[in-house]
């Protein structure tokens, strides 16, 4: 299904939930994903745990370690997705969020073929920026799995920060190509984007933030200038108030650490906490 099924998540504003596969066990993950679907989550990102997740804050780092400790492998995640599609008849789009090395080790063609076969729609790889997309773009496309592009505040900040920080930045060495990066880069990324665009809300790693200060509207406007691919905002979003603000500026919000934290606290018994929390977040869309 791939990119086509993802569209269905964005018919209205989408709430996208992340949970780490195998935290604390794969059976719990299966139950939690079914719960999230019942609550009206538009798309679920399943974290395929990696030993060294450099884009993650402490909450998801710890979840990755728990999942690896419980023996979660790439194959086990594929089996989980297969079960969700076949036995549980789950129809919402599903994405894998992971790092490039586990895919490289599995073999790109084999990985994407299997992903498509079990019913995965997209993959998000934080350590595979746009310039390196050629690594997997063709094979992902061949197997109809959307390769999600990420855009960050720094994608368009390159030219702005000297003034915003009031810092002297001698620029005589910048070539004209580098000087024009900011909005051009966003547009280049947006033009090739598939499924949805993952807009990173703020600097830093994943986690729970009290405040988001990035001018999201300006970045969304740059993206809108070249594509109607939906834009979902993630990193740091944890409260209904943030959802209310962000969902006005974008097509969806992505929440990870706040949900993973409930699982860290509740283990295999986090169902009521997840239900209450996710309802409050979806209501704020």
């Amino acid at each position: 299904m791939g990119p086509q099924r993802i569209r269905q998540a964005f018919t209205d504003k989408a709430f996208i939930a992340f949970i780490t596969g195998g935290d604390p066990t794969l059976d719990d993950t299966r139950r939690y994903i079914n719960l999230l679907a019942r609550l009206g989550v538009g798309l679920v990102e399943i974290g395929l745990p990696f030993s060294d997740p450099i884009a993650e804050g402490p909450i998801i780092q710890a979840a990755s370690q728990r999942a690896l400790a419980s023996g979660t492998t790439p194959e086990a995640i594929f089996d989980l997705v297969n079960t969700l599609r076949q036995d549980d008849a789950l129809t919402i789009p599903l994405a894998i969020m992971t790092y490039l090395n586990p895919l490289h080790h599995y073999g790109y063609d084999a990985w994407f073929a299997r992903a498509n076969a079990v019913g995965l729609d997209a993959v998000i790889i934080p350590d595979l920026p746009f310039e390196e997309h050629d690594e997997v773009r063709a094979v992902a496309s061949h197997h109809n799995v959307a390769l999600i592009s990420m855009v960050a505040p720094t994608t368009m900040q390159a030219e702005r920060r000297s003034s915003s920080l009031d810092m002297p930045r001698p620029k005589q060495w910048l070539t004209s190509e580098a000087r024009s990066t900011s909005s051009d880069r966003i547009r280049r990324i947006a033009q090739k984007a598939e499924g949805f665009i993952y807009l990173v809300s703020s600097l830093g790693v994943t986690g729970v933030r009290s405040e988001i200060t990035t001018d999201l509207a300006a970045i969304v406007a740059e993206i809108r200038a070249v594509t109607d691919t939906p834009v979902a905002v993630g990193f740091g979003i944890s409260t209904p108030a943030q959802v209310a603000v962000v969902s006005k500026q974008a097509d969806g919000v992505i929440v990870g650490s706040a949900i993973v934290r409930l699982i860290a606290e509740g283990g295999g018994r986090a169902d009521p906490a997840i239900e209450e929390y996710v309802r409050s977040m979806i209501d704020a869309l």
Binding site: P129, F130, E131, E132, T154, V200
Partner: peptide, 14 residues
């Protein structure tokens, strides 16, 4: 190559 989060790409380019 440059296998890093998007947040660092502009910086590495500069």
């Amino acid at each position: 190559g440059q296998y890093v989060p998007e947040t660092l790409m502009s910086e590495l380019g500069q």
